[in-house]
Structures are given as C-alpha cells and as structure tokens.
C-alpha cells in the first residue's frame, strides 16, 4: 500500500516530457527516422518470406514434376501435363462454363450462408433469450457433417441449382454463426459497461459497439466459410445433379484422364486460395484499427 515516491529524488514531474502533446522538432526528426527504420525492417521481412514461399513452390512443383514423369499416366501426371490438360479443358471442353456455373452457385450459397450466420450469430451473442432459444440447434448442426443432410435436401428440394445453393449455404452458415456468436460474446465486458454508462440506446449500441466489435470475427468466419463453401460446392455437384466443376472432376477421373482430373483439382485449390486472398484484402480495409498493431508507427 505504501507507495513511497520521494519528491526530492525525482524532482517535480514535468508534464509533456514523455507523453505530452508537444514534441520538439528534434523528437519529430528522430521519430521519422525510427519509423523509416521500422518500415525498412518490415520490407526486408516481407521480401524474405516471399523468397521462402517461392522456394517452397519450386521444390514442391519440382518434386511433383519428377514423380509424375516416372509413374504411369493413369495414376499421376507431371505438372506440365496437368497444366496443359487444364488449358485443353478450358479451350476445347466446357471447363469455362462449368467453372462459371460452380462460381454462380457458390456465390449465391455463400452469400446466403454468411448473411444467415451474421444475423443468427449476432442475435445469439447479443441477446440471452436468442441464445437460449436457438443455440442448441446451431451447435447440433455445427457438429453434424453437412454431407449427412444432402440426401434429405435432395428429397425435399430436388437436384437442381436451388438444392445445390441450399447445400452450400448450409456448409457455410454454421461455422459462420458460431464464430460470430463467440465474437460478439468476446466484446470486452468493460466496453459494454462503458456503453451503458454513456447511455447508448439499443440502436446506438448496435451501430457503435456490437457491429464494429464483431467485424473482425465476421471476417474470420467469412474466411473459414470460403473453404466450407467450396467443400459444399463439390459435394452438392457430385451428390445432386452432376454439374459444374464436380461434373468435370467426376467425368475426367472416371474415364481415367488423371491429368485432366488433377487439373480440375488444381483449379479448385487456386479458387480457394484466391477467394481467401480477396477476403484478406477486405479485412485489411474493414478493420483499420487492427492494422495498427503490425508495427507501422504504433507505440504501445
């Protein structure tokens, strides 16, 4: 308890020395230097990671190429053959339109899944009654492999694009809901208290606290949702009416065009990576307050 601060020892405190608003000209120049050095370090680190990534790609694709060249074509194919087959599928087969179809159902199903997930997750997170009412179903469905529902969905809705969109939405929505729910719950209890103290009404609470606080989790959920949605696309296309990329995959592998099948798989992988990258950009723009911690000028 006794916090003995000896006044003689330190002398009177001088406001502004360290944390005050006024920085001298020398301080500013020094600050600029420090920031510049930090930027240089960050640039170097980025270059190094890029180099590691490229090396890794060369090694993996090199191994693929070597192994593919020394095995039988029915089992595996070198990367060059796979890429060539992919080109042929685009140029002379229907891979382009199949990709378009898959993307269309993906976007519809994904959008529905994300929207439902945000609404459900936010309600469950913000209101205890909503959690009490629906959380058991959400967690039960979250724990259920959605593949198990596919035959039933087909029975109810049929085999067309609508059924596929519903299946994709189901794949996306439960992880989305759970992530957003936890996100809202993790908004700092002190901040909720602050909002009460500031006498925010319900609308203001949503606009200023709950929604912005949940944004990082919404984006995390949406990023996970990309992977789940792509799983949904392929399963839906294989299990209902054979169509889109699922059709391409099935046709090529059942006719032992292994290289072509691998090309389709590669395409799906690229889709996953690309869509995640897009969401990464969205995240960067949508949560400027989290960008700060990456060492560009923050003084923690």
């Amino acid at each position: 308890m006794a916090q003995r601060v000896e006044p003689q020892a330190t002398g009177a405190a001088r406001p502004g020395d360290r944390h005050g608003g006024v920085a001298g000209v020398g301080d500013k120049a020094l600050g600029a230097q420090v920031r510049e050095a930090r930027r240089r370090r960050a640039r170097r680190a980025r270059r190094r990671f890029l180099a590691i990534r490229l090396t890794s790609l060369v090694v993996v694709f090199g191994a693929w190429q070597l192994y593919g060249m020394h095995t039988i074509a029915i089992l595996f194919a070198p990367i060059t053959t796979v890429l060539h087959q992919g080109y042929l599928l685009f140029a002379h087969d229907q891979l382009g339109s199949q990709l378009g179809y898959s993307m269309w159902t993906f976007v519809c199903g994904y959008a529905i899944g994300v929207a439902v997930g945000i609404v459900l997750g936010m309600l469950m997170g913000a209101y205890r009654w909503a959690e009490a009412a629906v959380s058991m179903y959400v967690f039960a469905l979250y724990a259920t492999p959605m593949v198990a529902l596919v035959p039933i969905i087909s029975l109810w809705i049929g085999f067309d694009a609508t059924a596929q969109i519903v299946i994709i939405a189901l794949f996306v929505t439960w992880p989305m809901t759970v992530t957003v729910f936890h996100g809202v719950r993790q908004i700092d209890a002190e901040l909720m208290e602050v909002s009460r103290s500031l006498r925010l009404n319900r609308r203001q609470m949503w606009v200023h606290v709950l929604l912005p606080g949940a944004v990082p989790y919404v984006i995390t959920g949406a990023t996970q949702g990309v992977a789940m949605g792509l799983v949904g696309v392929i399963i839906a296309e294989l299990q209902t009416q054979l169509s889109g990329l699922g059709d391409a995959l099935q046709t090529q592998s059942q006719t032992y065009h292994t290289a072509a099948a691998l090309a389709v798989i590669l395409l799906i992988m690229v889709l996953g990576v690309g869509l995640r990258a897009i969401l990464g950009l969205v995240q960067h723009r949508a949560v400027p307050w989290l960008r700060i911690d990456r060492g560009d000028g923050a003084q923690r």
């Binding site: 901040l191 208290e193 602050v194 009460r196 103290s197 606080g213 944004v215 949560v287």
Partner: peptide
C-alpha cells in the same frame, strides 16, 4: 441507472478500439 449528468473515467480507459 446511469444518469446523463454523471461521467465515468474507467480504470482500463474504456475506449472503443474501432473509433
């Protein structure tokens, strides 16, 4: 309940990180 004429300063600042 919180009164409009009363302001609170919180131990852990209570600032909204997104603002």
């Amino acid at each position: 309940g919180p009164l409009p004429s009363v302001a609170v300063v919180f131990q852990h600042y209570g600032l909204f990180p997104w603002k």
